[in-house]
């Protein structure tokens, strides 16, 4: 398929209209000089990826992304940032010293992903097959059945790991006070 063939498909225009702003916003998340701006660019990135899921007829996943990530996770991010410190304007100490190794690592991940996709394309059944029609959402009944019947145990396992991670996070972040320190804290 040549590039002009690709452009002739209207769906690819919709893809470009979502993917280009998404890429710009994703870069701005890490280059932004203000931590609240970074979080807001993350909202834009997530919204665009929800749009990409809609293009793939995965309507339910798209709205899960909006409800859970934009509606809850980012709100918690912003809440956390604002309740601690959130100055308006540019901040000087946002850049991490290891930003160049980090950039290198993310480029390596990108290359690995691209290589994987091109390597497996044609070898996996249905990979090059026709995509489902855009605008026709996957029936949520099918999703529900797959979720409860076929993927129930993987789902429970992931839930369990997340719970363990949460408890681990609390244990690591929380500093238990000694009785003497507790007394001190109460006096203050």
């Amino acid at each position: 398929m040549t590039f002009s063939d690709w452009l002739a498909e209207p769906v690819n225009w919709a893809f470009l209209a979502l993917a280009l702003p998404m890429t710009v916003a994703a870069v701005r998340v890490v280059t932004s000089r203000n931590v609240v701006h970074a979080a807001l660019f993350l909202v834009l990135t997530l919204a665009a990826s929800a749009g990409l899921f809609i293009l793939l007829s995965a309507e339910f996943v798209a709205w899960v992304l909006v409800l859970v990530y934009i509606g809850a996770v980012i709100v918690l991010f912003l809440f956390g940032i604002m309740i601690t410190r959130a100055p308006i304007g540019r901040e000087t100490d946002l850049s991490h010293a290891g930003r160049w190794p980090a950039a290198l690592a993310s480029l390596a991940v990108l290359a690995l992903t691209l290589w994987l996709i091109t390597a497996v394309s044609g070898q996996v059944e249905g990979f090059d097959g026709p995509l489902p029609a855009v605008g026709v959402a996957t029936d949520s009944a099918i999703l529900g059945e797959g979720f409860i019947m076929r993927y129930l145990i993987p789902f429970e396992a992931v839930g369990f790991i997340l719970l363990a991670a949460l408890i681990g996070g609390i244990t690591l972040a929380r500093k238990d006070l000694t009785p003497a320190e507790e007394e001190e804290a109460e006096r203050v």
Binding site: E9, P10, V11, L131, P132, A133, G135
Partner: peptide, 9 residues
């Protein structure tokens, strides 16, 4: 790849 049919009309 199917097009975004309704979008063109």
């Amino acid at each position: 790849m199917t097009g975004l049919v309704p979008m063109t009309g």
